[in-house]
Simulated assay, not measured.
Amino acid sequence: MAAVPASILTLGALFLPETPNSLIQNSKDPEKAKLMLQRVRGTNDVQAELDDLIIASSISKTIKHPFKNILQSKYRPQLVMAIAIPFFQQVTGINVISFYAPVLLRTIGLGESASLLSSFMITGVLAQLGDYGGISKGYASLIIIFICTYVAGFAWSWGPLGWLVPSEIFPLEIRSAGQSITVAVGFLFTFMVAQTFLTMLCHLKSGIFFFFGDG
């Protein structure tokens, strides 16, 4: 089942256009970058921005220690965002359903078939479970609706923006370091959430959803 969306993403990547930055860095023909920039901005008046990109690209190639440079005070806002954005993306609880949807749905009283169906839903947790035993089928169905609503909202907000925003806020001279930190922090907290969720569920019970809701 995972092969289907993975194939769509793989094939779609083949048709993604180059960005002006990548064209400047990988091509010696600035006209290609200018045409792409005109297409993105919807205007032919892009020469000033193109010149800035070319200068920034030239400067970035002279930087020898991006991880050391990102610690400078002038890059402090970007460094904070490189850590804060992936952190808050993970503490929304989105990966909890990805990993533990069958456990959660069995907890609220749904059967194995419903738990299997939940593998189609990459969702976060915005539902309150009973602390003891199952709940009614009607309330369980309502919880699934809330879960689907949550993942739809996540897909329109934190989902793509958690990766898009960091990639755009770093100057070219520290972008490699900034993106590396963003990805590392994201995977670190993904691991921590996955490893601690069951223990937290046992101790906090329904209160765990207030924890993720506050995140």
Rank of each mutant, 00 (worst) to 15 (best):
T62Y: 03
D131G: 15
Q25K: 13
Q179T: 03
L198G: 09
A13E: 09
V125T: 08
G213N: 06
L14P: 00
V185K: 03
L201I: 10
I24W: 01
I97N: 13
F88S: 08
E112V: 14
V40A: 12
M36Q: 15
A127S: 13
G124A: 15
G111F: 05
M121S: 15
I24S: 05
L105R: 02
M192G: 01
C148M: 14
M200D: 08
P5H: 05
K137F: 13
M192V: 15
G12M: 00
L53K: 14
Q89Y: 03
I70H: 02
M1C: 10
D51E: 15
Y150T: 07
M81N: 11
F87D: 06
V4K: 00
T149S: 11
P160K: 07
K68W: 06
S119A: 14
I145Y: 08
W163Q: 03
G138V: 04
L53V: 09
V40N: 14
S167F: 04
Q179H: 00
Y139P: 02
A33I: 02
V40W: 08
H65I: 03
G213S: 14
S176D: 09
F191E: 10
R39N: 14
I63K: 03
F191L: 15
L16N: 00
S180D: 04
L129R: 04
W163K: 02
P102H: 10
F212V: 05
F99C: 05
G186R: 02
V96K: 07
T62F: 04
I70V: 04
N95W: 03
P171S: 13
S157C: 13
V80Q: 07
L9W: 12
V103K: 09
H203C: 09
S58D: 13
G134D: 15
L117I: 13
D131T: 12
